[in-house]
Write a protein that binds this DNA or RNA. Structure first.
Length: 264
DNA sequence: ATGCATGTTACATG
DNA sequence: ACATGTAACATGCA
C-alpha cells in the first residue's frame, strides 16, 4: 500500500509519541522485518529514550530519539504505523511496539516486507545525508528531470518511474496515475518520447505527488473520482476521461492499468 | 484451492 | 560495466 503520501500519513500516526519517553519495548526480533537491525540492540537502545521528531523521504521514515538514537522504518508492501491503548493486547503482526505513558507506538506488517533500522549517530545518520532530490522540492526542476531521462532511452517509462533513487516515493498506483495524466502508455520506451510528452510527464509527476500529499497524507482520504486511482482496481473500471474500459496487464513486472484510447 | 497484492533486492541474462 | 528481467521474500484475501 504505502507510497509517498501514505508513508507521510503513517509517519504522522506516531506523532502522539513526540516528546514522550519509551518505557518498554516489545518486538518480534526473529521476523524478516529485523533483517537489517539487531533486535536486541533496538530494544536495549530505545528504552528510556525520548521521541524527538520524525521525517519522511519518499517511502522511508526516520524517527529521532534522544541521545543520538534514530529508528528507520520502511513499510514495504503491507506495513503500517499506529497507536494502541495500553490496555489492549498487541496483535500477531505487531513486530515492534514502543510503550509510552499513553499507550503503544506500533509497527505492524503481515507480509514482513517492511524493515526496521537502528542508527546511533550524533547528527543525521549517514544513510540520510545523501538522498536523491525529493520530487516536490524546488531542486527537482525540469533540467534535473531531463538529465535523468537523457541516458536511459531504452528504459520502459513505467519501470523508470518506480526507481526510488530517481523518483523517491513513486509506487505502482502513482506511476499509473502519472502516465495516465500525461497520456503516455506505460510500456513506451523513453527514447521515443517527444519533447511535449516529456514535459507532460514532468508536469504530471509533480501534479500527482502534490495531489497525493493534499488528499491522502492528512487523513488517508482517496483522491477525487477524476483520478484514475478510483477506477483502476474495479472489475470493468472505466477511464474517467474516455468512459471506456481500462486495460490491465503486466508492464515491467508490475500489474499496470491504463486507458488505451486516452494514452498513446 | 488458485491467483494476486500500492515493495525491494539478489541474481540471471542480454 | 550496463540495462533489464525474474524469483524470492511471507501473509491474507477474493
Amino acid at each position: 500500500m504505502p507510497e509517498l503520501a501514505e508513508v507521510a500519513y503513517y509517519c504522522s500516526r506516531w506523532n502522539p509519541g513526540i516528546g514522550n519517553r519509551v518505557t518498554a519495548v516489545e518486538l518480534h526480533g526473529q521476523t524478516r522485518c529485523f533483517r537489517d537491525a539487531d533486535a536486541e540492540d533496538v530494544k536495549a537502545v530505545l528504552i528510556g529514550k525520548r521521541l524527538i521528531g520524525s521525517r519522511t523521504h519518499g517511502k522511508r521514515m526516520l524517527f529521532e530519539f534522544s541521545q543520538g538514537c534514530w529508528l528507520g522504518v520502511h513499510l514495504g508492501m503491507t506495513g503500517r504505523l499506529l497507536t494502541r491503548e495500553t490496555s489492549v493486547a498487541l496483535e500477531k503482526h505487531d513486530h515492534l511496539a514502543l510503550k509510552m505513558n499513553f499507550g503503544w507506538l506500533v509497527f505492524n506488517d503481515p507480509r514482513q516486507f517492511g524493515k526496521i533500522e537502528l542508527f546511533e549517530s550524533e547528527g543525521l545518520p549517514d544513510r540520510w545525508r545523501e538522498l536523491p532530490r525529493e520530487i516536490l522540492s524546488k531542486e527537482f526542476d525540469y533540467e534535473y528531470f531531463d538529465r535523468i531521462l537523457e541516458r536511459r532511452s531504452r528504459a520502459i517509462v513505467k519501470s523508470l518511474l518506480l526507481v526510488q533513487d530517481l523518483f523517491p516515493g513513486v509506487g505502482n498506483w502513482m506511476a499509473d496515475e502519472i502516465l495516465w495524466r500525461a497520456r503516455i502508455r506505460p510500456d513506451r520506451r523513453l527514447g521515443c518520447l517527444g519533447e511535449k510528452e516529456q514535459k507532460a510527464l514532468f508536469d504530471s509527476l509533480r501534479f500527482v505527488c502534490r495531489g497525493a500529499m493534499k488528499y491522502v497524507a492528512p487523513d488517508y482520504t482517496d483522491p477525487p473520482r477524476s483520478w484514475l486511482f478510483r477506477h483502476r482496481w474495479k472489475a470493468g473500471g472505466v477511464c474517467p476521461k474516455m468512459g471506456k474500459v481500462l486495460e490491465r496487464d503486466e508492464v515491467g513486472g508490475r500489474t499496470t492499468c491504463w486507458s488505451s484510447s486516452w494514452q498513446r
